[in-house]
Amino acid sequence: MTSSTNNATRATPTRAILALTLLAMGLILVAVLLGVVDIPMTEVIAALTGNGSEQSDLIILTIRLPRILTGILAGIHFAVAGTLLQSITRNPLADPTIIGISQGATLAVTVFLFFAVYRFNSDANTLYTLPVSWLPFVGCVGGLMSGLVIYSLAIAKRMAALQLTLCGIAIGAFLHAIAMGIVVGWGSSRFEIVMQWLSGSLYARGWEHVLFLLPFTVAGLAVLPALYRPVLMLRFDEDVARSFGLSYRLYFSLTLGVASILAASAVGAVGPLIFVGLVVPHLARFVAGRHFALVIPFAALIGAALVTGADLAGRLVGGPEEIPIGVVTAFAGAPFLFFLLRRYR
């Protein structure tokens, strides 16, 4: 390495910060402006400043804006949770599915919908006649419960990072199998309801979802500065981290807890968005280089931009029929995963 590249990695990457912020803001702006219904820019501005017509108010303020904000918050949650999990498990392929959060949420939502359909005797085949406003809570609680099971196993058995990962994958697969069993046994007519949720979507997400996520976002991000140095320590082997003076169990648990809460609330609100939690941390670390303090802020920015962009693409490409955002992120994420596998070979 030459000294000039050293200097380049040393200087605060102001340009990267600016570029990412502009990218995220640009995408958000485009997402507000573009949609299935064409609304002129002047009308959009009018609606945002409180002078819009009834129709543009409805589309901009009640439909597009809360949907975009939900996406931003969920993107931040998945990206930050993935970054924390990859650090503490020291596994570059870790994401919220690895500690069973997504699968726990999936099972809880499946069971809930199953009972809801019978309880309310609904024969509707769409989500909204069901008590959908409960789904975020149900998904969040389900995700947290499976996270808690894996977490207490890890503590009780004094598991190392690799054991924890394997345990999480096993329990996750088990929960997912139960959920799929219910879906298949249920019959194809109701299949769609769960599949729509499972593929991860911002469809029909409103202000209640923003308000559901926001407290978790604020609380989670408020704790993170205190975890910065410990999380850096958690990237070392356990013996090394403890010799450097880290209360390993305490901070491992705390970090796992914060990641679980962020991931579970996001899964509850928008369903499991595959690949966001896996891919974004790598991009963030790549951009941040040695500036470890910037990895989490970068992850948050990229996560917000990625989900906003993926949702925009899903809304526009398919015409009136939306492509669920989870499908878009998986579609874009799969090639990236191949790239990663090549890199870690």
């Binding site: 082997d237 013996d239 880290l246 040695r290 470890f292």
Partner: peptide, 26 residues
Amino acid sequence: RRRDLAKRLSFLPQNPTSPENMSVEQ
């Protein structure tokens, strides 16, 4: 407490793993 202990005693295991992207000074 590990923090108090680390000020008195330091331990270097055999073959520790180095985190990615880290410089000597870091």
